[in-house]
Amino acid sequence: MNVQAGGGGGDAGAPPAWEIRKLHILRTLRERETVTATAEALRMTPSAVSQQLTNLARQLGVTLLEADGRRVRLTGAAHLVLRHAEAVFAQLERADAELAGYLHGEAGEVRVAAFSTAVPALVVPAVLRLRRSHPALDVRVREAEAAEAYELLAAGAVDLALSLAAHAPSARDPRFAVVPLLTDPLDVALPAGHPLASSPGLRLADLAGEPWIFGGSGPWSEITTAACEAAGFIPEQAHIASGWTAILAMVEAEMGVALVPRMAAVRREGVVMRELSADRPYRHVVAAVRRGAEGGAGVSRVLSALRESSPTPALPAVTCAAPPRGLRG
């Protein structure tokens, strides 16, 4: 494989053939699978994407793409190139992080994407803590669900993404480093006048015959049904809602009961939040950064503030392994 620009024989002043921009395009094509989707993600034209990848293949002296019906697929050589490119991208992130620390010291900007309940319960307290300890560090917050948050992180639009562990990238994903933040217990929301509202030693199984309120689909529906099934029953879904304000309002109106993450609970006069004495389900909140950027001064400070603001720190891995399938988020 010829890695000198233009196929040259070693001119020290020649630019490297493995141009970062072209490698980024190749990596995006691997993720998006089509030239059109790659062009949309990078705000380029499809012809420009094709031209850049053709130039990269010519410079490297290998075939990077092959026809697959009306699409293209990456060759073995392309995957080999990308395995090495991931190390390059990580090293560049480390260089950027070190340079930012050198140039800004206590100052700088960290952009955070987080899911809705994490913003008031975790991110805002962390921002207030940093405002006192590092007033020149500017934290910009963007509410985003997991899929969007990781797209923003991969594109460089944010520096840190918060999500539930079930929706975080795999540890095998070379683009990201994932850091556990907290373990969030799930409590039961009961109407204040419910016979079990003050019952000692409440278990999830005690609520098997109750009408339940949870989402019609998605992770919270899966978490509720999986928790109840692990306790030995299938919950009767009396009402469907995904917002915590709506769910708690229905509980207060004695329309049913619900599982509520502790960090999402909002005090309501007619609702009693009960901690389960056994078979307690919980979800895990994690933060992800681009691999190599976790050592950056600003990102490290934000991660520390998030951990310090967590009411329930992340449990050790051995403890977290116990929940039934579907509760790892």
Rank of each mutant, 00 (worst) to 15 (best):
M1C: 10
G7S: 12
G10T: 08
D11W: 06
G13P: 00
E19F: 03
R21T: 13
K22L: 11
L23G: 14
H24E: 15
E31F: 09
T34F: 10
T34V: 10
V35I: 15
T38W: 07
A39N: 03
A39Y: 01
A41C: 05
A41P: 00
T45W: 03
P46Q: 06
P46E: 07
V49H: 04
Q51V: 09
Q51H: 14
L53M: 13
L53P: 00
L53E: 04
N55W: 13
L56A: 07
G61K: 11
L65W: 01
D68N: 12
R71C: 03
L74V: 02
T75V: 06
G76F: 08
G76S: 10
A77K: 11
L82H: 06
A85K: 03
F89R: 08
A90F: 06
E93G: 02
D96N: 08
H104L: 12
G108D: 02
V110D: 00
V110K: 00
R111N: 01
A121H: 01
A126T: 00
L128E: 15
L130Q: 00
S133A: 15
A136G: 04
V141R: 07
E143G: 12
E145F: 13
A147G: 08
A149C: 09
L152Y: 12
A161M: 11
L164Q: 14
A166M: 08
A166V: 05
S170A: 13
R172W: 04
V178H: 08
D184L: 05
L190R: 04
A192P: 01
G193A: 12
H194I: 11
L196F: 09
L196S: 11
S199E: 14
P200F: 13
L207I: 11
F214E: 01
G216V: 06
G218V: 06
E222Q: 12
E222K: 11
T225K: 03
T225N: 04
C228T: 15
E229A: 14
E229Q: 15
E229W: 06
Q237K: 14
A238Y: 02
I240C: 14
A241N: 08
W244F: 14
A246I: 11
I247R: 04
A249Y: 06
M255G: 05
V257I: 15
L259Q: 09
P261D: 05
P261M: 08
R267L: 13
R267V: 14
R268D: 04
G270C: 13
V271D: 01
R274S: 10
L276K: 01
S277K: 07
D279I: 06
Y282P: 00
V289K: 05
R291D: 05
G292D: 03
G295F: 03
A297C: 04
G298V: 04
S300Y: 00
S304W: 02
A305M: 02
E308D: 15
S310F: 00
P313Y: 08
L315T: 01
T319H: 11
C320S: 13
A321D: 10
A321V: 09
R325W: 07
R328G: 15
G329T: 13
G329W: 04
